[in-house]
Amino acid sequence: MRAKDLSYSVVIGLLAGLGFLILIGPVVIVLLTSFTQGRSIRFPPSGLSLQWYQLLFDSVRSSQIHRAALNSLEVAVVAMVGATVLATLASVALARRSGTWVRALDTFFMSPLILPMLAFGLAALMYFTFMGFRPSLALIAIGHVVVVAPLALRTTSASMSQLDPALLESSASLGASWLYTFRRVTLPVIAPGIAAGAFLAFVGSLDNVPISLFLAGPRSDMLPIRMWGMMESTLDVRVAAVSGVLIATVLVLMLVMERVVGLTRRLRD
């Protein structure tokens, strides 16, 4: 019995360790590499320095990267807001209803998660071109809204389904209209779910490559694509430094979200 328990713990421990290694390993390697003293992306780094970060934050020599980063941020904010509003409306409409139509709509809204993004990127490019639009940041943002909205919808509808219907009924019997109830009860109660969804949508847009790849034009360079370009042509170590900044940013955001809304709990539901 004890030996069995022990071997069970050993197996689980090893698996957990392996998972940890696969998940954390690359992050650590990229971070360490970004602090290299050398002139190429290589692990282990040859000595430690901040030179690549200094270069990255140099507004003259890294202006293209800054441009791309600002574009990506702008698109991520717009996509986050758009996706969050759509997801909230959809989850309020679909919550606690059953029926063929409701299920069909739910599946429809979630479908961008399964749809191959490259195919959607190409389709979006053809569609927008056909309608006479030129590639632009706005088009990229629209494309991102489509693919990140399901992420926001998942956490928002999870919160909606946990919202006690008795709260809404109490509110109604106390004389509140639907709108008043929505503003003072529904929205505040599901706010953590909405916030978690917004965070997912933001991050999902920030490092989206397939949609940006198709919809980006010469004036709308996006950060992930610029990074890829830098890797391809020059093995520029600044790519590692950008990764470092991204990882740190997301980590900080995640800690803040965990504090404020209990992010991991929202994602598990």
Binding site: L167, S171, S173, G175, R184, V189
Partner: peptide, 27 residues
């Protein structure tokens, strides 16, 4: 329901979790 002026107390009490006691009563 919101125009009937019928009060209800649920088994779960259904208090608004994000509001204080006073705000619940004021609602």
């Amino acid at each position: 329901a919101n125009l009937r002026n019928v009060g209800i107390v649920f088994q779960s009490y259904a208090l608004f979790p994000h509001m204080t006691v006073a705000h619940n009563v004021a609602y």
